[in-house]
Design a protein around this nucleic acid. Structure first.
Lengths: 241, 241
DNA sequence: CACGGCGAGATTGTATACAGAAGCGGCCTC
DNA sequence: GAGGCCGCTTCTGTATACAATCTCGCCGTG
């Protein structure tokens, strides 16, 4: 399948995640998923050989995936030493959340502007899935869905560039929560998600933005950036696919 | 991009440009520079072999560089077809500038907050260099310096994550100006840069933000997003290193 | 004359081989 | 016994070889 570009700029440029038999991206996505839902702890070493063997691909492919993750800030590459799951410091954590506080209210506004009923159904279904995962104690899916909610909002907002930025920020947030989260579980107040949906449905931009700020503040207040020293060096090996 | 993490959380996150004999990054930077200052036109094909020969490296290194540029939105990769200098459509262009209008005022505010006299000197010197390049008709350097001014502001602002995002946005802006710019030359009203510096020196956050918005609007108004169809493209070869 | 299939050439996708750097342990020295 | 030096091992960095896929021109047919 090809990627079509139209003259008027209606570029439907979705990352070729779905249909492309792009092995490197598959590995990248799998690793990102594993990092985001805390199966791979910060500072875990990602040896090229090891990862390659796990996915049945050569180091070439793995390297491409790791470089992509590095660009997204989920992995740090150290020359001649290898790749490690990122372990953001307190300062970096603050900057990530500052960036989110800047971007997400604007996204919420845009979503309210662009809102159509179909969005509401999708978002509500999403929230139900979240609730279900949370109730079932399925922490992995709860975390993933919680982040995806914010991403879906960004998609509705319509600015694909901001959406991609936010994707990075959310992924990194997940790392940060893994390192500094207090409760860890109540990652994202799901009720707040529902409240935001209501504001969108009412096309109330200001309210949507305000609720988003409040929501982010709640997530932020669940962090303890002081107490936790960057983290020692646990070396775990859990790549259960 | 290497990330050094200290135990106290003081993350010094320097691009490994200077000391690292990282060939892939060198190629990436050279290509980015060539794209940004319009030596490489949008839609130009970047053949791996060709680029590799130009820099005297193997395709392995080139591929890494191209993938990085693709992630930054300066290059589009098409599977089994190769890499091309990106040719953003009108919609994408609007999104880039919308993102800048969102991020840069905040950066201006932060810069005003963090301002110390040393910054003023650096920025004024930078402006002088801009003026000089402009007067000398050195379009390449004028464009580059004009963009770098915004980046320096982001550095002063202190949020490295936003600074990196902005770096991407500025690079892409350069592409957009190449495609849709009317005058093309008055890329960035330099006087507006000076005005912003004054606002920073006065630590007047609101004024700095307002001036920044105005500045971005001016750049934006120099674009003609309607008229220009993405543009067909020749194959030029101007990689003067 | 137009259209569609087909094959040669070119270009990318992936694997593998080799070279060089970092880490580790043993051994020697003081 | 402690510390430092030097080899080995393991890993990454880079180049290259081979396979898969696409492009484009050619030729045959309707």
């Amino acid at each position: 399948m090809k990627l079509e570009t139209f003259s008027d700029g209606a570029v439907v440029w979705r990352d070729g995640t779905s249909n492309a038999p792009d092995r490197s991206r598959q590995v990248r996505d799998a690793l990102q998923a594993a990092i985001v839902d805390h199966r791979l702890a910060p500072s875990t070493k990602l040896s090229e050989d090891e990862v390659g063997e796990a996915f049945g691909v050569s180091r070439t492919v793995v390297r491409a995936a790791l470089q992509g993750l590095s660009h997204a800030g989920l992995v740090t590459l150290e020359r001649n030493r290898g790749a490690f799951v990122a372990s953001p410091g307190a300062q970096e954590a603050r900057q990530v959340f500052d960036a989110r506080r800047l971007i997400e209210p604007d996204i919420a506004r845009a979503s309210a502007r662009n809102y159509i009923p179909k969005n509401g159904k999708l978002l509500r279904d999403h929230c139900s899935a979240e609730a279900e995962a949370l109730k079932a104690g399925d922490r992995r899916n709860a975390i993933r869905l919680s982040g995806e909610f914010h991403l879906k909002l960004a998609d509705i907002g319509g600015n694909l560039i901001l959406a991609r930025f936010l994707g990075e920020l959310i992924a990194r947030s997940s790392l940060i929560i893994a390192l500094y989260g207090r409760s860890g579980v109540s990652v994202c107040g799901m009720h707040e998600h529902r409240a935001i949906i209501s504001a969108l449905a009412a096309k109330d931009e200001d309210k949507a933005a305000a609720l988003m700020i409040e929501h982010l503040d709640h997530i932020d207040h669940d962090l303890d950036l002081e107490r936790n020293p960057p983290s020692p060096r646990p070396l775990s090996e859990l790549l259960d696919l």
